[in-house]
């Protein structure tokens, strides 16, 4: 009991900031409505880009449209939720330019934990809803044989996918300390990563499989769990059983992310920033 209370107390600083951010976003109702609709449309247009391809062909990379819906849905749901809770790490270059990162040093919590909980973008819930709907449609129309296995894979894939994308945001933030004006470079694996995650990895060339299959483990966020759930064989280098390894990808993503963040912070404290 006392231990739980202590832990809750330790989270109080983070809760206070997040609750306040969430309140202030909903305070301006008209703005928030516009944000929600915009975010919803972003999700819809991204889905439409995939759908357009399937008006020309029946299968891509060995997957029909309803199967791709599962990949797209898993990827976009996980990414939108990661974006909701970690996306503001993208603002780090502004903090670095203005010197406002220093303010975080004056507070008795770890800098990264403060940055992560410094904001929350509730509008991304609308885009997550598009992902959830696509995932639901994919699951119900592609003839998944339900089993405990499939259910575990789905949950495992979603949670790991969320964590993997979140780790990518941390990795990008760590690199910002070095990239400075070249901040856009991290878009390649953060937003490029999201785009890759919605694709059937079977269409990738070998270098792409290496980069987005393993180094930035995007195939593990949606494609591999989906292939395992659907009972499809994976392509060369990416067999279906790897779908079970999604948590390992999440761990790898966070390991590289935290390592980079540590390097970045050291660089900053060393005065190179």
């Amino acid at each position: 009991m006392a231990e739980t209370a202590g832990r809750l107390e330790r989270l109080r600083p983070y809760r206070a900031v997040l609750a306040s951010r969430a309140r202030s976003q909903r305070a301006y109702r008209a703005n928030f409505a516009v944000d929600l609709v915009s975010s919803l449309l972003v999700g819809v247009v991204e889905l439409a880009e995939v759908w357009v391809l399937f008006t020309n062909v029946t299968a891509l990379g060995g997957m029909r449209f309803n199967q791709i819906l599962l990949v797209f849905g898993l990827a976009d749901l996980a990414f939108s939720l990661a974006d909701l809770s970690f996306g503001h790490l993208d603002n780090l270059p502004d903090f670095l330019r203005a010197g406002t990162l220093d303010v975080f040093y004056l507070r008795p919590q770890p800098v990264l934990a403060q940055l992560i909980t410094s904001d929350i973008s509730l509008r991304r819930l609308a885009r997550a809803a598009v992902g959830a709907a696509a995932m639901g449609a994919g699951l119900t129309t592609s003839g998944v044989t339900w089993s405990p296995h499939a259910a575990v894979l789905l949950v495992l894939g979603l949670v790991s996918g969320y964590a993997t994308f979140a780790g990518m945001f941390v990795l990008a933030a760590g690199l910002q300390f070095f990239l400075l004006d070249g901040a856009e470079m991290t878009n390649a694996f953060v937003y490029g990563g999201r785009y890759a995650a919605t694709q059937p990895a079977s269409v990738w060339t070998r270098p792409l499989k290496l980069v987005f299959g393993f180094f930035f483990p995007m195939a593990f966020t949606a494609y591999l769990p989906a292939v395992a759930i659907l009972g499809l064989p994976g392509p060369q280098w990416l067999p279906a059983w790897l779908g079970w390894c999604a948590p390992a990808a999440a761990l790898w993503s966070w390991a590289t992310g935290l390592l980079c963040w540590r390097w970045g912070l050291r660089h900053y404290q060393g005065g190179g920033g």
């Binding site: 470079m185 991290t186 878009n187 390649a188 490029g192 060339t205 270098p207 792409l208 987005f212």
Partner: peptide, 13 residues
């Protein structure tokens, strides 16, 4: 350079 790297990555995908 940053923009170019992002651009190329999206292009390859």
């Amino acid at each position: 350079l940053g923009g170019l790297v992002a651009n190329l990555t999206f292009g390859l995908l």
